[in-house]
Simulated assay, not measured.
Amino acid sequence: MTERVVITGASSGLGQAAAEEVAATGRHVVLACRDADRGAAAADEIRARVPDASLEVLELDLADLASVRAAAKALLAGPPLGALVCNAGVQVVGGIRRSRDGHELTFATNHLGHFLLTRLLLDHLAEAGRIVLVSSGTHYGPRRSMGFPAPHWENPSALADPELSVLDDSPRSGRIRYATSKLANIYTTYELNRRRNGRRITVNAFDPGLMPQTGLARDYPDRFRRLYGRIAPVLVRAVPGVRSVARSAADLSWLVTAGEPGVVSGLYFVGRRPRKTSDESYDRVRALELWEFSERLVSE
């Protein structure tokens, strides 16, 4: 039976490129996308380069918990999953936006939707299956993320509700929310790894590096995006720590498909090497608090 690999946010950028890399290994890839039409177009592009690619498109809006449940129900109807890649993400710098369920959009998309999807699919993961959460070096703070502002951890209720947060609606606060959501991804990785209960699955976080050729800057002003797009190839060639989408996709595919499954777990990979995360990312109290709060938010 062909192994199924689910990749969220696979209609463009890192998700699409990783889907192509994984499909080239002979695995069946589920492109889980908010826009099914864009997902279908991405699948067509992959097939043009990998003619025998086994692909399907699944509609999934991580900012809508009902959509997450519907997508999970569809996946549970099929054979066990070989891997789940939680890749999709947003960075909101144009004020405060909320999800369909009323939660702050960055928290809802980058953390909560993936949290629910993982919870629903966890028992359907095949033995020796893999879960990868795409995080970011922004969780380290500006000294290690090229000036990107550091995360600002708050009580999870304030992360979910902007009215309870000390952050305002400025672009800088939007970037802080993004960095904080990536710290939440690491807390989730470590806490989920502690909850494997002896199952031979792996749970790891992945840092793709700064990839200026992705769509994460889509909420930025048009002028900035045009300039960023022009200088992106130069940054990839000249600046350490900046990576092309193709290189990061190959690394992500490697983490999903290579090596002995079920052995290396609970780590943070930069490229293909495990790295120590920030000191605050090892706070077990925060990780447990986030987990339990998220469980309450997604309970029906």
Rank of each mutant, 00 (worst) to 15 (best):
Y187K: 08
I201R: 00
A179W: 07
V203K: 02
L210M: 06
P156L: 11
R199T: 09
D219T: 03
S145K: 12
R196W: 04
I201V: 10
N155A: 12
I186E: 03
D219Q: 07
G147Q: 08
L216M: 10
G141T: 05
S173A: 01
L164G: 09
E191K: 08
L167V: 14
R143G: 15
W153N: 06
R177G: 02
G198D: 05
D169Q: 00
R143I: 05
R195T: 15
A150I: 09
W153Q: 12
L210H: 08
G174Q: 03
Q213H: 03
L216F: 09
S145W: 12
R172H: 12
S157Y: 15
A150H: 07
S181V: 08
L216S: 13
Y190E: 00
E154C: 07
M211Q: 10
R143N: 11
A150D: 00
L167T: 01
R144S: 10
G198C: 13
R218T: 03
T202C: 05
N197K: 12
P162H: 00
G215Y: 01
S170Y: 11
P142T: 14
I176Q: 02
M146Q: 15
N204E: 04
L192R: 04
G209E: 14
M211I: 13
A184T: 08
S165Q: 00
L183N: 11
L164P: 11
Q213F: 09
I201N: 00
I186T: 07
Y220R: 07
R200P: 09
R194S: 11
L159E: 03
I186Q: 06
D169A: 15
Y190P: 02
G209A: 13
R200L: 12
S181I: 09
I186F: 11
